[in-house]
Design a protein around this nucleic acid. Structure first.
Length: 260
DNA sequence: CGGCGTGTTCAGAA
DNA sequence: CTTCTGAACACGCC
C-alpha cells in the first residue's frame, strides 16, 4: 500500500486522531518492529508525552513526541488504525500506542518497515538514510537536476536518495501519463519529456494525495494493471509488463515508445 | 507446492 | 563513484 500518497494519508490520520493525546503506554506486540532500541527503551522515551503535529518525508512518517521523534516506515503492508483500545487487537497490530481516550495501532502484515526513535536530526538521518527532497515539493527545474545522470527513468524516479516518495505504482502511473517508456535513459529525455514528466508527477501526486492512495480509477493505469490481459485506458493496446529496476513495471507499448 | 507483491538493503558485477 | 541485478526479508493469496 504505502507510497507517498498513502503515507500522507497516514500523516493526516495521525494528526486527526492522535495529535494532542498523551501516550499512556506503548504495547510492543512484536519487538522486531521497534528497530533502533529495545521495547522498554522506546517506552521510556515516549510514555507520558503527547503526539505533536506530524510531518512526512517521502514514505517516512515523522511524529514528534516531546523532544523525540517517532519515525514510522510502512514497508509494503503497513497502516495506522485508531481504536477505542479496549477490544482485542488485530493479529497484525505490531505496536499499539495507548493514549488518553483511544489507541493508535501500527499494523503491518508482512513486517517490512518498522518504528524508530530519534532525538535529533542526525538520528533521524541514521534511520531514514539520505533522502532526496519530497517528490511533491520538487519544481520543474529541480527535478532535472535531481535526476541528472544516465540511469533508467523509472529507476531514478524510485531512487529515494534522489527524490523521496515514489514507488512502483506511482512511477508507472506518472510515466504512463507522460508517455515515457520506463527503461528510457535520463540522458535521452528532451525538454518536452522533462516538462511532461514534471507536470504529470505533480498531477498524479495531487490526485493521489486527495484519495490517500493511487486511485484505482479505470482511466488510470493503476485501475487496470492488475487485470489479466489489461488494456491501455488511453489507446486500448495490450499493456506490457516486465521487470524494470527490480520491480514489475507496467506500461503501454504504443503510448510509451521504447528508447534506450 | 510454486509464484507473486504498492519496500529496502546488501553483495557482486559491469 | 554509478548503475543494475539478484537475493533476502516475511506473510497471505492465488
Amino acid at each position: 500500500m504505502p507510497e507517498l500518497s498513502d503515507v500522507e494519508g497516514f500523516r493526516r490520520y495521525l494528526a486527526r486522531y492522535a495529535m494532542g493525546r498523551r501516550i499512556e503506554r506503548v504495547e510492543v506486540r512484536d519487538r522486531a518492529m521497534i528497530r533502533n532500541t529495545s521495547p522498554s527503551g522506546f517506552g521510556r522515551r515516549v510514555q507520558g508525552r503527547r503526539f505533536a503535529d506530524p510531518s512526512r518525508h517521502g514514505k517516512w512518517l515523522l511524529a514528534p513526541v516531546g523532544e523525540q521523534t517517532v519515525l514510522m516506515h510502512f514497508g509494503m503492508t503497513g497502516l495506522l488504525r485508531w481504536t477505542a483500545g479496549t477490544g482485542e487487537p488485530h493479529v497484525h497490530d505490531r505496536v499499539i500506542f495507548h493514549c488518553s481516550g483511544g489507541a493508535l495501532s501500527y499494523r503491518n502484515m508482512r513486517r517490512f518497515g518498522g518504528i524508530w526513535i530519534a532525538g535529533d536530526d542526525a538520528e533521524i538521518e541514521q534511520a531514514t538514510g539520505r533522502l532526496g527532497p519530497d517528490a511533491f515539493d520538487v519544481g520543474r527545474g529541480e527535478l532535472e537536476e535531481l535526476l541528472g545522470g544516465r540511469a533508467g527513468v523509472k529507476a531514478a524516479l524510485m531512487n529515494q536518495r534522489r527524490l523521496a516518495g515514489l514507488g512502483n505504482l506511482l512511477s508507472d502511473e506518472i510515466l504512463w501519463r507522460a508517455r515515457i517508456h520506463p527503461r528510457t535513459s535520463l540522458a535521452r529525455l528532451r525538454r518536452r519529456d522533462w516538462n511532461r514528466l514534471h507536470a504529470e508527477m505533480q498531477a498524479v501526486l495531487r490526485e493521489s494525495i486527495r484519495h490517500a492512495r493511487v486511485p484505482p480509477k479505470k482511466a488510470w493505469l493503476t485501475g487496470v494493471r492488475d487485470d489479466r490481459a489489461a488494456k491501455c485506458p488511453r489507446c486500448g493496446s495490450s499493456l506490457r509488463r516486465a521487470t524494470v529496476a527490480g520491480r514489475t513495471a507496467c506500461w503501454c507499448p504504443r503510448c510509451q515508445r521504447g528508447r534506450r
